Amino acid sequence: MRSLNITTQLAVIVPVGAMLIAFDSSTWWEAAVLLVGVVAAMVSVVRWAQDTISAVALPCLGVSAAVWVFGVLVAESPTAFYSITIVGPLIVPQLPRHRIAAAAGLSAFVGVVGAARLLVSDGDAGPTLFQYSLVPTGVTVFTLGFMFANQAFYNLMAELEEAREHEAELAVARERIRFASDLHDIQGHTLHVVKLKTALAEKLVRADATRAEEELREIHALVGDTIKQTKELAYAQRRLNLAGELENAKNLFEAAGIRVRIVREAEVTGPAGELLGQVLRETTTNILRHAQAEQVRITLSASGITIVNDGARGQTPPELRGLSTLRDRLAGEGGELTVVRADGEFVTAAAFPSGVAR
């Protein structure tokens, strides 16, 4: 982009500058001085496109100003302002402060130096002022206005690019949080269930070896299924099945000696079903970890899912980070997640007010 910017601007500046030198200089040394001004303009354009014009601002501006003074007082060259009307407008909008004052000062300098032609000219004042003062000042003001607008455009583009970068960073952060949440759902749930079943198998190993072997086989199958789900998560292929999660929750509660009742008022599929499956899985893990429940009631309706357990103990509920993350995810899909403790019961409800059976 910078190379294109430099090429397109120099493609205009160099031919125009060469033409003005050819038509507006009567001796070789006058042409040489005007050429120095064009070179200063070229250097300024290149360094401006490279965003390093501040390093050459003073020498280029001094050279172009001297060329304009030379053109007015010595060479009788009304187009000697060419270089300063390129260099000045490139520098002024880049200043950190006092840009308006600098723009006014530059325009005044061009106009006053041009008016100084009256001191060495015997011609009519009107045409001389028009040719040496009014036209150069007008060109300077116009170019300054254009470059200020150009600078504002570049600043806006830079802000948009920065905003896009921030948005990309936020998207990456959100994806990492989502991945961590899903990984927590899989690994955390499995580890707690394995812990439960291992403790049960340990109790049964002498009293009921056959049942203990069955529990160990279930642990083996559960670990294998978790490995599979982790791979699916890594390759973005994981999909939760709400019906499967209901059956899994029922088996886990029964294995833990908790009575469970499932009421299916409606079937939910699609993305909403996956979210509700995540809520059910997280809530099941929380009940097994934190509650001393004897009975769990799961109600699936067209608007969501409600899980009630009678294991609420103490005055303050435990911190449930997994549900907090799911609350944000449901909110992003137009749903809401509520967790309420009342009359010895702990109620977790995920609902889509507009209905999820769609």
Rank of each mutant, 00 (worst) to 15 (best):
V263Q: 07
V113M: 10
T269Y: 04
V223T: 12
G126Y: 06
R2K: 12
F130G: 13
T27I: 12
L326G: 00
G355D: 00
H290C: 09
S25V: 02
R97V: 13
G322C: 04
A11L: 12
E294V: 09
A40G: 07
T198K: 02
A102Q: 10
A171D: 07
Y132F: 15
L191W: 05
G37E: 02
A234F: 08
M19L: 15
H290Q: 05
V141W: 04
E202N: 13
N248S: 12
I186N: 00
V141R: 00
M147P: 01
V339G: 04
C60M: 14
Q295A: 09
D225C: 03
Q229V: 00
V33Y: 05
P96H: 02
G277Y: 00
E267W: 01
A75D: 14
W28S: 14
Y154T: 07
L326T: 00
Q315R: 07
E282D: 02
A116V: 03
T52V: 09
E175P: 02
A65K: 03
P15A: 08
Q315S: 12
W68M: 06
L119H: 02
A163R: 15
L200M: 12
A75M: 07
A80E: 05
L222N: 09
L276S: 03
P127H: 02
H192G: 11
R289G: 02
G311T: 02
F142Y: 14
L134K: 06
L118A: 10
Q292Y: 15
L58Y: 09
A236E: 11
Q9A: 15
L90F: 14
W48D: 13
E159R: 15
G270F: 00
E282C: 04
A40P: 01
F253Q: 09
L280I: 01
T269R: 02
E232I: 07
S354A: 13
S324Q: 12
P15V: 05
A291I: 08
I177D: 08
P78G: 06
T143D: 09
A236F: 08
R327H: 10
L106D: 05
E213L: 14
Q50W: 06
